[in-house]
Design a protein around this nucleic acid. Structure first.
Lengths: 209, 209
DNA sequence: GTCTATAGGCGGATAGAC
DNA sequence: GTCTATCCGCCTATAGAC
């Protein structure tokens, strides 16, 4: 049994998905036409519909693939054996690095998912909630153990994920900052923002990706 | 000389602008048709063009109005006589409260400005840079005076503004949090994230709006 | 699996009457 | 300042040949 997906040559469906993610991030979902996508891929507009039943389904697929890939990685960190401070730092670093490394896909997830039709949206909302609750639980544990200051964990989760998500809009690959540098700095600022005592030790458990 | 703009009854141009801001935030610039806007205002599509020459000009006007209103308020705080920590806290609180209170307009500024045509974009980029540099300068002063930890002020500005901007996407007016509460909490988290020693004193200079 | 051709509607914008 | 009528191009999506 050969696993085509994880292998070398990308199939047409995957090339379409990649180009779509890039265009959706650059021009927005509603600013990208199927014609423009077809041109980018190098096939005709009609051929797209052989691989995906609709533009909506294509967006949904991009988002789904992203969630399915990143969620387990964050879950593993969140459920590991470190102090909450270290787990939060590692999870946020991973989240931020992925947001830069796979920015086309992640941008579709965080910026363009609002254009999902009601059917797709329902599924998406649930999975996104589960993903963010991974972070919130770590924050709650950190508060309970006295690693972080007493505070509302919902607002804290909003603040920290909002901060890290912003790299998608603000990061420029030509810029002066390396992805790892940004991710580490953001995670530092984040855990310090919750009132963590020893940011240094938290950073020690950094992910290298 | 009567100032029409600041008075009671909004003219048609202003009603169009308000409706447009609401729709652009909800459905996105490219997801909002001139027909939908006309219906929301209660006039015909053609009548819109008597007040604004194009959809682009309408978006540009919304963004311009927002910048012109908020920038002086932040500038006054940034150039006031408080320690950097207090100035940053007050400025971020104002920024966040405004992002909630005038979310339709601010969302057009922060989320939809990317759809501006090159002509309008150039002007916008400059003014946005000036606005954000107000925050960056306060952060730099805070670092120089030892109020904040030694760090890259550009990344810090990205992180903090990204965090506060996220309320636009994440805040739900039906939610459990009051605007002031969110703004104060975010500002607390932000200045703490830079390593400010006394967040309490910073919060003392809170804005009430 | 890709193509040509086309359906059928909606997009932004304009002309010109009142 | 608002209307009706209209231009024309582009939109998503489908039919059906190869």
């Amino acid at each position: 049994m050969i696993n085509r997906e994880s292998a070398q040559e990308p199939g047409t469906a995957e090339r379409i998905r990649d180009s779509a993610a890039t265009l959706f991030r650059q021009k927005g979902f509603n600013g990208t036409s199927m014609q423009a996508l077809a041109t980018a891929v190098g096939i005709t507009k009609s051929s797209l519909y052989h691989h995906y039943p609709s533009k909506q389904a294509l967006l949904a697929e991009i988002i789904e693939v992203t969630m399915s890939r990143v969620t387990p990685l964050v879950r593993e960190i969140a459920q590991s054996d470190l102090p909450a401070t270290g787990r939060l730092h590692r999870a946020l670093t991973l989240h931020t690095v992925e947001s830069i490394r796979e920015r086309d896909y992640v941008a579709c997830f965080s910026e363009e998912s609002r254009y999902l039709s009601p059917t797709f949206m329902e599924t998406h909302r649930k999975k996104k909630g589960e993903y963010e609750s991974l972070f919130q639980k770590v924050i709650e544990e950190g508060i309970d153990r006295g690693e972080f200051l007493e505070q509302d964990s919902g607002l804290a989760t909003m603040a920290l994920l909002g901060m890290c998500d912003s790299v998608i809009r603000r990061y420029r690959p030509t810029g002066e900052y390396a992805p790892d540098e940004i991710a580490a700095t953001f995670a530092d600022t984040a855990v310090r923002g919750l009132g963590a005592r020893d940011t240094e030790r938290a950073a020690a458990g950094e992910v290298t990706r």
